[in-house]
């Protein structure tokens, strides 16, 4: 049962083998950028806060699995992940409550949607208007909050699961 020759995921501080580490070094930024794209363009293309948050979380998980927990916690420590989790939930709620003050209703889309005719070509060039980045009012903002929340909470659970040692009697310090 206590076979130390088998694969120990994220239990060694030095991480996995050289091949995995080299590829992870190349791939992790691309996964992160792809997750950001999915989040920011969630209201125009397939995707959104949930999928993007889990994809960003995947890049952190890759670092955690490939390089071990020291390097992963240098990027995103457990305390910071817990704080981000709460910040994401609170920010989402804050955007919802702000609707009461700006438009009178809870959860209303209070960032005004510009009418189609009122946008000139200069504004469209910098990204305002239909089918542009700044088009959907509070939806992209909420997408960002949800992505932060999902990413941080999944990372937190995964890091704790990866650090849990069952076979030994002694548990690792968090």
């Amino acid at each position: 049962m206590n076979n130390s020759n088998q694969i120990n995921i994220a239990e060694h501080s030095e991480g996995m083998s050289l091949v995995v580490r080299t590829i992870a070094r190349w791939v992790k930024s691309f996964i992160f950028i792809f997750g950001l794209y999915i989040v920011f363009y969630g209201h125009l293309t397939p995707g959104g806060g949930f999928a993007g948050g889990v994809i960003i979380c995947c890049s952190f998980i890759l670092v955690l699995l490939a390089f071990g927990k020291e390097r992963a916690f240098k990027r995103l420590s457990l305390e910071r992940a817990g704080a981000l989790d709460s910040i994401g939930a609170l920010g989402f709620l804050l955007v919802a409550v702000a609707g009461i003050f700006f438009a009178g209703t809870f959860f209303v889309n209070w960032l005004s949607v510009p009418a189609a005719g009122s946008i000139n070509s200069l504004l469209r060039k910098i990204g305002v208007g239909e089918f542009r980045l700044l088009s959907a009012g509070t939806i992209p903002v909420n997408n960002i909050w949800i992505a932060i929340k999902v990413c941080a909470s999944m990372y937190l659970v995964f890091a704790l699961l990866a650090m849990l040692r069952i076979n030994d009697d002694t548990q690792e310090d968090l």
Binding site: F50, V54, V150, S153, M154, V157, F158, L161
Partner: peptide
């Protein structure tokens, strides 16, 4: 529901 299922699985 899918994201909830991930949390519940964890």
């Amino acid at each position: 529901s899918i994201v909830i299922s991930l949390g519940v699985t964890a």
